[in-house]
């Protein structure tokens, strides 16, 4: 494999006595859809936040596009091409849908007119165009998730990071979410998604990385990963792993 787009090397994160990530090394290649999965408390969200730049890791380095971004603040990483959504949606509630997306588009567009045009394109792409002039707070939950994605895409990222953006949706909504993620990848954007609903992610991702208790457990093709005894035991307990 050529140099990966994203790489974490021996990343540790401690919160006081709690070790959220221990020695996690993962890599994501350009053009991939990678799923970061694991049971609750596995350290997925922590790793996600470390990559997004919410806080620097206690130890280890993070590389993006061949550059060490370990100490870089979130805004600067966005400039470099890392965009993210939030597990608990963080819309700009008092702003309209289009204005929410314009905020994202401004990073690559000097002129307001260009940012606005870009935002309209992205809304069209994400199927939110009819809601453009609604206030973000008036959207239904699944639309808010879409808005998160639209806002992130407006920054024209190389890597789109989705934090449980398909969790808690109805099956129909989740399905159209999956379709959207596929569409995003077709435009050449690499996707790293945290999910714990296996049946949604597995058909979607090229590769899955399983975290458990802060450590990387396994990684590989989704079909292999789900059959892996350690993964089954992590999700269901040791009893179930015996037969595998």
């Amino acid at each position: 494999m050529t140099t990966p787009l994203l790489e974490t090397r021996g990343v540790w994160q401690r919160f006081g006595g709690l070790i959220a990530n221990s020695d996690v090394s993962i890599s994501v290649g350009a053009g991939e859809i990678v799923g970061l999965i694991g049971p609750n408390g596995a350290g997925k969200s922590t790793l996600f936040n470390l990559i997004a730049g919410v806080l620097p890791p206690t130890q280890g380095t993070i590389w993006f596009n061949g550059e060490n971004v370990t100490q870089m603040p979130a805004a600067e990483r966005c400039q470099r091409g890392i965009a993210r959504t939030f597990q608990v949606v963080k819309s700009f509630e008092t702003m309209t849908v289009i204005d929410n997306v314009i905020v994202g588009a401004l990073i690559r567009n000097e002129k307001m007119r260009d940012a606005r045009r870009k935002a309209h394109e992205v809304l069209e792409f994400c199927g939110l165009a009819p809601r453009a002039d609604k206030l973000a707070r008036d959207l239904i939950p699944s639309e808010k998730r879409r808005l998160e994605v639209a806002r992130a895409l407006a920054t024209e990222p190389k890597l789109l990071m989705l934090d449980e953006c398909l969790t808690g949706l109805t099956p129909l909504e989740a399905q159209s979410g999956v379709a959207l993620v596929r569409k995003v990848r077709e435009t050449g954007v690499t996707v790293l998604m945290v999910e714990h609903v296996m049946e949604i992610v597995m058909p979607l991702v090229d590769r899955a990385i399983v975290l458990n208790l802060g450590k990387k457990l396994v990684e590989g093709k989704p079909a292999d990963v789900v059959r892996h005894p350690e993964v089954i035991s992590a999700y269901l307990g040791d009893r179930h792993a015996v037969g595998a």
Binding site: A75, F86, T94
Partner: peptide, 26 residues
């Protein structure tokens, strides 16, 4: 109101974390 700054400010007011993630230096 219709400038970069205006949009950044409203974003910062509504949600600084989200603003930061979109490249706004809060």
């Amino acid at each position: 109101e219709d400038s970069k700054w205006g949009f950044w400010w409203r974003a910062v007011k509504d949600n600084p974390d989200a603003a930061e993630s979109l490249g706004v230096v809060v």
